[in-house]
């Protein structure tokens, strides 16, 4: 019966110890900025929240609640359209599918007049219903608030 403990405990311990000690953080802010606007320089217009780029883009950092915990994400906007959405950090055990590049790609090109509704122009993720809904609402609000910024 205890055989499995003899096998798995050392393995788990080794993997835990050898694993990198950083958070399950997929991107740092500067990495996300680089991904969105590779060669631009950034000017902070709201500390820690909104940046304008030398190329005329806008980079907004935000968070929403997934099921219970925060999801940190970034939206970059060019000319009133979503240029890119990235998940910087996802903390919950379920619903991490919102990180899927193909799901996030759906936001590209959306404007403040797009419906941005899960089940309509953004597809629902089965098993990540609340996360997908809240991220979509978040992007919609960012577009409403910053979509007009030039």
């Amino acid at each position: 019966m205890t055989g499995w403990i003899r096998w798995t405990a050392p393995a788990a311990a080794m993997i835990s110890l050898s694993a990198p000690a950083h958070a399950v953080q997929y991107l740092s802010v500067s990495e996300a900025q680089k991904l969105a606007f590779p060669s631009a320089s950034f000017t902070e217009v709201q500390p820690g929240r909104v940046w304008k780029t030398s190329s005329g883009g806008i980079f907004v950092l935000d968070h929403v609640i997934g099921k219970h915990l925060y999801i940190d994400y970034a939206v970059s906007i060019v000319g009133g359209r979503v240029h890119r959405v990235d998940i910087l950090q996802y903390r919950e055990s379920y619903g991490g599918e919102v990180r899927s590049p193909s799901w996030l790609a759906q936001f590209v090109g959306k404007t403040s007049s797009s419906p941005l509704q899960v089940g309509a122009d953004i597809r629902n993720i089965s098993g990540a219903t609340l996360s997908s809904m809240h991220v979509t609402e978040g992007v919609k609000r960012i577009l409403a608030a910053y979509g007009h910024l030039r």
Binding site: A23, V60, E137
Partner: peptide, 15 residues
């Protein structure tokens, strides 16, 4: 504060 966009609450540092 959570999900708040327009008010200027800073996001938590990533750690």
């Amino acid at each position: 504060p959570a999900g708040d966009l327009v008010a200027d609450a800073p996001l938590p540092s990533q750690t």
